[in-house]
């Protein structure tokens, strides 16, 4: 029996190795010099791991990493600020039309970003939101807010109504009940929603490339994209930049993998 299970482990390790090969290849390429990277046949392990590519790329990309951090952080905060009260209201107050609101949220998640970006570009231009952090954060929130509401609602529905009832009867207002009773209970769901909002804000390329027309606000995704078109032979530097752009994803995976699996299923299956 044990033997058979080890057999499954070997199969799973092989599958994982194949699936993660592009990642492995990115990392080892970033650790080679430009001569090594063009060696034929290619090195499957860097002969002399070097950090020259990183030294160059890090200085160059630091401002873009900062921009991404601001945008992703802003997206996380704004989307939670808007979504958490709404999720509570949907889960705990009995409104007419809540069903319609949920359908609207589901539909809004499915609107292609390109269609939205087209109109937002023109509209943001009219109100002066192009080339501003606020504009980019507002646009990035477009997919986080519906997603966050759906995740948080699923969680908040599991909170017994007696808890908020008791607080209300004790004389706490609706807002205080929400802020000091409901939010602390919902911590894990808020973290899940926040993580996804952060990853979305960090990874967004579409809104940044359409609406940040000047170079002043250029997140790492756009910078990596223009890097590829400019220095099409410095593959080690491109790979180093790609690794830097993946740090938050890797970090969040390490710190909070259980939240990520929770988020991936809860946002999509419950309608």
């Amino acid at each position: 029996m044990i033997k058979r299970k080890i057999h499954l482990t070997i199969v799973a390790i092989l599958v994982t190795a194949v699936m993660l090969f592009p990642l492995y290849w990115t990392i080892i390429s970033s650790l080679e010099t430009n001569d090594q990277i063009f060696h034929q046949p290619p090195y499957f392990f860097p002969p002399t791991p070097e950090f020259v590519a990183y030294a160059h790329v890090f200085v160059e990309q630091l401002p873009h990493l900062q921009t991404s951090l601001i945008v992703a952080g802003g997206t996380t905060l704004l989307s939670l600020f808007v979504a958490a009260p709404a999720a509570y209201a949907i889960a705990h107050f009995r409104w007419r039309g809540v069903g319609a609101l949920i359908v609207a949220l589901l539909i809004s998640q499915m609107i292609p970003g390109v269609s939205l970006a087209n109109a937002l570009f023109i509209l943001f231009n009219k109100v002066g939101l192009l080339n501003s952090y606020l504009g980019l954060i507002l646009a990035d929130c477009s997919f986080c807010i519906p997603f966050n509401i759906l995740i948080l609602r699923a969680f908040m529905e599991s909170i017994p109504k007696d808890i908020s009832e008791a607080a209300l009867v004790d004389g706490a207002g609706e807002v205080r009940t929400f802020a000091s009773v409901i939010l602390p209970i919902s911590k894990s769901a808020l973290i899940t929603a926040g993580l996804f909002a952060f990853l979305f804000g960090w990874g967004d390329f579409l809104f940044a490339v359409t609406m940040m027309t000047q170079d002043a606000i250029q997140p790492i995704t756009v910078s990596l994209y223009s890097y590829i078109s400019q220095y099409s032979q410095s593959w080690n530097e491109m790979m180093a930049a790609a690794v830097l752009a993946s740090i938050p994803a890797a970090f969040l995976l390490l710190v909070s993998q259980r939240y990520i699996t929770a988020g991936m299923t809860s946002g999509s299956v419950k309608g």
Partner: peptide
């Protein structure tokens, strides 16, 4: 195995 889904798409595309 979740990693490919979490990476920014631009990073996966570059790889």
């Amino acid at each position: 195995l979740l990693i490919p889904w979490l990476l920014p798409l631009i990073v996966s595309g570059t790889a």
